[in-house]
């Protein structure tokens, strides 16, 4: 974010990233109950560190549902974006009630992980899933939407060392181990101090 006012961000980029950072934290499409389940799932799909503000993943998914822009394809058997999320969250809750007699949100994290693994493998099979399989929901909606929205957030870019937006100024040094002065340096063992010093200059 240090680069926000530099030549690496054009006006359009500033505008949309600001909007993303200020996404409303209250659900607008999902019901509060659905939203709570989604929050619990997002915590497991992308566990976030405690030492910085959390990326509000459920709010970002909800924001996408408000905009209602699909991926441009869905598998036969799966409904459209909004309906897929509704149906998938409801099916998960129904199956959890049937199996554990409680909501996904009330399970301990390791059980939540186990359930998500089973969903990924297609081992959740309550009739409530209908024609959309649990596996398909996990792959095309749940993990897909949460993770792609996370990696569209500046906090995630910093975490992975991605240079972030880059226009009108692009890059000059493109070879192995080359870094422009406006890219973050990588900290390697024993050289963390140098990286910190280098990185203090990034963003100009």
């Amino acid at each position: 974010m240090a680069k926000r006012n530099s030549l690496s961000w054009n006006d359009k980029t500033r505008e949309i990233i600001d909007k993303r950072l200020n996404v409303p934290r209250e659900p607008r499409f999902l019901t509060p109950v659905e939203f709570a389940v989604l929050e619990a799932i997002a915590d497991r799909i992308i566990p976030q560190p405690d030492d910085r503000p959390r990326v509000p993943l459920a709010a970002l998914v909800d924001d996408r549902l408000v905009a209602d822009v699909g991926d441009g394809y869905r598998s036969a058997g799966s409904p459209r974006l909004r309906e897929a999320w509704r149906q998938g969250l409801a099916a998960l809750e129904t199956e959890m009630q049937a199996r554990y007699d409680r909501s996904f949100t009330q399970l301990d994290p390791s059980t939540q992980d186990l359930v998500l693994k089973q969903m990924q493998k297609g081992e959740l099979d309550h009739a409530a899933w209908g024609t959309m399989t649990a596996k398909e929901f996990f792959k095309s909606r749940l993990a897909h939407d949460i993770a792609t929205l996370y990696y569209a957030h500046p906090a995630a870019w910093s975490e992975m060392g991605f240079g972030g937006p880059a226009a009108p100024r692009g890059y000059v040094r493109m070879g192995y181990n080359e870094r422009d002065s406006w890219e973050a340096a990588e900290a390697s063992e024993g050289k963390e101090d140098q990286a910190r010093k280098d990185n203090a200059r990034v963003g100009r």
Binding site: S8, W9, N10, D11, K12, T13, E15, I16, I17, R20, V69, G70, D71, G72, Y73, R74, S75, A76, R80, T148, L149, A152, G164, P165, A166, A167
Partner: peptide, 23 residues
């Protein structure tokens, strides 16, 4: 110059995202 952001999510506005079914 004025409409494009350096951003994967925003730029999905360039894609054909109308409903299509695949099998």
């Amino acid at each position: 110059l004025e409409d494009f952001a350096s951003d994967e999510t925003e730029q999905s506005k360039l894609y054909w995202t109308d409903d299509r079914i695949v099998d």
